[in-house]
């Protein structure tokens, strides 16, 4: 056997590849683990704060009143500056939206895995996916309604739709048709609104207009519209 033949044989091992579902699932699990840790950290901060309060209020009453007064002054100043509420509302809504999309992607993956390997779990996976899609729909709806107060939420909708497009397709089953239709209708509406207001290239503008017209005429359904929009804007990092 020549060296070249030996190397060729060795290179035939390149055909060994992991299962696609497993790759997606593992990625999601690893990055989700991060979110879980963040939640635990937040819970720990809250615990520390509660412990501090317990210590202070279990001591002298006058000291407790002084501390309370100081706390009120601080909170009042912070609210007056308008920093805390705005940031908090923005953060909460955006985090909730991202989480809902993430959970929807995870449940869609679980469903795909169940269809492939564990038929007995399919029914439960469908129910979980339905709930996740409904929650994501609700987040998109909230983002659309509060677009005037916080346009960045619509940006998050667009980014999450593009980021999760692989999983969104996985969820395109007949059992989920009704739930999915509502999600896609709402998302398409949000995407039209977001990209309609945003500065985009001339080509993108033409493409967006054409998708809008086709959808209005009933030539394409919402899921196709969302897919076309993610393709148009997905490669630009938007």
């Amino acid at each position: 056997m020549t060296e070249q033949e030996l190397i060729q044989k060795l290179q035939s091992l390149k055909q060994i590849k992991p299962r696609e579902n497993w790759v997606l699932f593992t990625k999601n699990q690893i990055l989700n683990n991060n979110i879980q840790e963040e939640i635990i950290n937040k819970a720990n901060y809250a615990k520390v704060f509660n412990n501090v309060l317990d210590v202070i209020f279990s001591r002298k009453l006058s000291f407790a009143y002084s501390f309370l007064a100081l706390l009120l002054v601080l909170v009042g100043t912070y609210s007056f500056l308008g920093i805390y509420p705005l940031q908090k509302i923005k953060m909460d809504a955006e985090t909730e939206l991202k989480n809902n999309f993430k959970i929807m992607a995870e449940k869609s993956q679980n469903l795909a895995a169940a269809i492939e390997n564990e038929p007995q779990k399919v029914e439960q996976a469908i129910e979980e996916t339905k709930t996740a899609v409904k929650n994501a729909t609700e987040s998109v709806k909230n983002a659309t309604e509060s677009v005037k107060e916080d346009p960045s939420l619509m940006e998050a909708v667009a980014l999450e739709t593009i980021r999760n497009r692989t999983y969104l397709n996985v969820a395109g089953r007949e059992d989920l048709k009704e739930t999915n239709e509502e999600f896609y209708n709402m998302t398409l509406k949000a995407l039209f609104e977001y990209y309609g207001e945003k500065t985009i290239t001339e080509d993108q503008e033409k493409e967006l207009e054409s998708i809008k017209n086709s959808h209005e005429k009933g030539e394409i359904i919402s899921i196709v519209g969302v897919e076309l929009i993610t393709k148009t804007f997905g490669n630009t990092g938007e």
Binding site: L13, I16, K17, P18, R19, V23, T26, K27, I30
Partner: peptide, 23 residues
Amino acid sequence: IEKIYRFVYLKVSSQEIAEDITS
């Protein structure tokens, strides 16, 4: 992901174990 999986798989010869180790 593909490279590390392949690397691990070639050492353990089991899809299940390779997936576990790669994760």
